[in-house]
Write a protein that binds this DNA or RNA. Structure first.
Lengths: 167, 167
DNA sequence: TGAATTGTTTTGAGGAAATCAAGACAACTG
DNA sequence: CAGTTGTCTTGATTTCCTCAAAACAATTCA
């Protein structure tokens, strides 16, 4: 029951927490539980399930996470997933991105300034460590007097699969 | 799957014209009407009104454009505005951006690869001609095998007014 | 260990943004 | 000026997300 047979498209990133798949009750140790506790949040089954699903499938919508979570935790409500994600995101445990034309996606990779490349055809998402220099675009020539504190870069293109399908 | 929100690469950006405020009927000449006709679209009162409103207020939502249009054209429906914007955007006459936490915004400035800086506090939007080199970030080191054809950059910060209000 | 406290989840309603569909209507063509 | 084609109006619908109240569970403290 470690893996749920989820259509995973997991790229390189993963937490060095591979085991402890089941929820063994309150006081649950394990690295997932610890990271939740460390953020000042209570450890619950829905939260562990969402975090585990996000490890398997980064860049995933609330609705899809809901479907994944329900496989192992059928009683979970969609609103619970939204609640978990809101709590995680405001605690800095997850990051939320909102690509054009897509519902919000969530990822566990936080705290580094990475960006995303999205397939215009199939909406696949991959992480991109931004290229030029160290923080490209973070210093626009003329920001109209704004004090800039973040830059968000989204690349649009064709993923390898869709390139092959087109050719 | 649509490609909604992907930055348009359509050339043909026409300079804003401030004159010809009224709609004088079919066959309406004027620069606004011309640019609509040149895009292969019929010239109608709602379309002229939307285009004019976008000249006055760039980076504006459909709902707000609806309010603006209704001032001079009270019979116009919200769906008409959505229709006009969809037609304009797919014809390359306008560009649609979707900042996180905001409804879609539309602008007439198309065909150049410019970006945006948005105030985290008041949501004000300004154009930014991206800085480093000519097309920064357009060549990520490792795009996971994607063929990248567009890069979208959003800067987040504090606008001059909100800086003053904070100080 | 067991009750108190606090935070989380469930349940149900609701709202904002955008889309779809059918018929009425207006702009361009010849 | 009539025909053709595309646009607009009207109304319903979908998707994504939030709010609120009450049931409930995780942690804390006696």
């Amino acid at each position: 029951m470690t893996t749920t047979g989820v259509p995973s498209t997991t790229p390189g990133f993963s937490d060095p927490d591979s085991s402890s798949p089941g929820f063994s009750g309150p006081g649950e140790p394990g690295q997932l539980g610890d990271s939740i506790r460390r953020s000042g949040l209570k450890v619950t089954a829905p939260r562990l399930a969402v975090l585990r699903a996000l490890d398997d499938s980064p860049h995933t919508s609330a609705e899809r996470l809901f479907a994944l979570v329900r496989i192992e935790l059928p009683g979970t409500s969609l609103q619970a997933v939204y609640g978990v994600l809101a709590a995680f995101t405001s605690a800095g445990l997850t990051r939320r991105i909102e690509p054009s034309g897509s519902p919000a996606l969530y990822e566990r990779r936080v705290g580094d300034n990475h960006h995303h490349v999205i397939c215009s055809s199939c909406a696949a998402v991959r992480d991109v460590d931004c290229a030029v220099g160290e923080a490209p675009c973070l210093e626009p020539n003329d920001a109209a007097g704004f004090v800039v504190h973040a830059a968000e870069v989204t690349f649009w293109g064709l993923c390898p699969d869709c390139q092959a399908a087109t050719a």
